[in-house]
Design a protein around this nucleic acid. Structure first.
Lengths: 236, 236
DNA sequence: CGTATTATTGATCGCGCTCAAGACCTGTGG
DNA sequence: CCACAGGTCTTGAGCGCGATCAATAATACG
């Protein structure tokens, strides 16, 4: 089900050292974390934590993308979180998870056993401050997402999604290439749409010259300004 | 615009003492908070914090209900937060607010000046832990809300909203009376619907005997089990 | 290659939006 | 007391966006 532990990276050379929950830790604190940390890889599609379970660990995404989803009894599914490298995974309060965490791509996690991590958290204000900051940022993102799901059109939803990806992952600021780390089905679950509607909107944006698509997962943004207009930005 | 300060309540006799952000504070910490706190009332409809502003204060809702909303350039509006007594108000990270905070009913806040509150926060782990806990609870609620907006039908949305209100505010567990603290327009903004659709679904639930409505804001839940069925609960 | 999976495109349907009218509620002044 | 105004809520008629159902097309993979 799960690969054996990958070799432990030294924190100093960790690619997410500057942005993860541990970014404000000093050398001593890193040493403590080091004793309870554990690299682990998951292939795309595998469930990392199931809804209702109490995970034995929390952790940071090092590489890859993790999706959080909720499912209704009749199978309707909505994505409720999308975690990129440096994002934190886990219901920290000790409660059980209320959604599934699934590897959207191949994923590497830097996992911490729950109990010692929480002990460290309680005794390390800088770590707790960082986690609070990250949780508030996620809450802000969730609120933007509420606007998207509640009031945007299919066109605006797809454009917004591409713009979010461009901001988070693109290299070249102008005319960026983005690799969409999700299938059309995952995009639909993110946007509260069907795969057919996602596909149609992608085709329309392509036909109008806003984007260029090759192979369904590689998108070139040809007109960034236009894309932002199409996304129907909030007014503030 | 805003009423003068209401008389300061002693924390010991505060109605939200057990559940607010200060619930884990000891006597000394309450004394410090006391020096920077400030009761204030806002009449229904008044803007408490505008999007883009950096509020000079944060605080707890003591009585009444505060709505957080986002507005698009063309006027489409989505509620993204709904704060009841004991809930915390304010973008704590020191950043600017990214949505409007408006009094949905007459509201009393227990306000703290931002700078001293943040100083206290940094030096008081128990306070920070409590705020982290509350922020994670809000994030959980926001994720449930994402499912509602993305995948539920109008019927399910309205039933879910009534069930949420029943859980948060009702007195009698069986056949509870609830007072809806929002107008139909606010309900529509909460649910990502129009006021007409909200009204139609309320009428349908009434006709089918699930609820009883008197005066648009007072609802008796006649069949709680049925209401929960109609809300299309998540599967876990 | 052939098979399975995923994505695109087309045709039709229905839920919730829009536009419009009417009901109800609340307060104000004669 | 009624009359009237302004707002909120309800109800009705018709439409359009996105869902559904269905058929290809493209891609991944052994």
């Amino acid at each position: 089900m799960v690969d054996p532990a990958a070799p432990k990276l030294r924190c100093a050379s960790c690619p997410i050292r500057e942005r993860a929950v541990c970014s404000t830790c000093d050398a001593d604190e890193l040493k403590t974390l080091d004793r309870v940390k554990n690299y682990r890889t998951y292939p795309a599609g595998v469930e990392i934590i199931g809804a209702g379970e109490t995970a034995a660990f929390v952790g940071s995404v090092v590489t890859g993308v993790v999706k959080l989803t909720k499912t209704m009894v009749d199978g309707r599914r909505q994505m409720v979180g999308l975690l990129f490298p440096s994002d934190f995974l886990g219901r920290y309060g000790g409660g059980r998870a209320d959604c599934d965490a699934v590897a959207a791509t191949d994923v590497t996690l830097c996992q911490f056993e729950r109990a010692p991590f929480e002990a460290l958290l309680a005794s390390t204000p800088s770590l707790e401050q960082r986690l609070l900051q990250m949780t508030m940022d996620e809450l802000d993102a969730a609120r933007e997402w509420l606007l998207l799901l509640g009031r945007k059109t299919a066109r605006e939803k797809v454009a917004s999604f591409l713009e979010i990806l461009a901001r988070r992952t693109a290299t070249n600021p102008e005319s960026p290439q983005i690799h969409v780390p999700l299938s059309r089905e995952d995009m639909a679950d993110y946007l509260g749409l069907t795969i057919e509607t996602v596909s149609r909107q992608m085709s329309a944006l392509k036909k109008e010259g806003v984007i260029n698509v090759r192979g369904a997962r590689d998108v070139e943004i040809r007109d960034r300004v236009r894309l932002i207009e199409e996304s129907g930005e909030a007014s503030w």
